[in-house]
Amino acid sequence: MDGLEIEYENGVMRASVGGEVDHHLCASVREDIDSAFFKYAPKKLILDLTGMKFMDSSGLGLIMGRYSRCLAAECEFIICGVDERAMRILRMSGMDKVLKIK
């Protein structure tokens, strides 16, 4: 699925982002994730990138931004479905060392 899908159950919010995760997509996805985040105030946020076909540094910005939101709200933050290319970008920034990646 391209774009964003949000599910919430028992304190766990899952945001699945698919398609080309660039600046254009991130601008809208970020707002929608954040408004759901404030509505549900989850204990755990899972950013699921399984459906991602492309990511550049804008996607990294999206991940870093959600990470700091969660840190401030004392919410656990997990990302999953990261492919090898996205992993390279995460490593470049050092974010691979602070994130919970599954």
Binding site: R30, S57, L60, G61, L62, G65, M92, S93
Partner: peptide, 10 residues
């Protein structure tokens, strides 16, 4: 703008 500052590095 939540930029990571990694564009040139990429």
């Amino acid at each position: 703008g939540e930029r990571s500052g990694m564009g040139f590095s990429v």
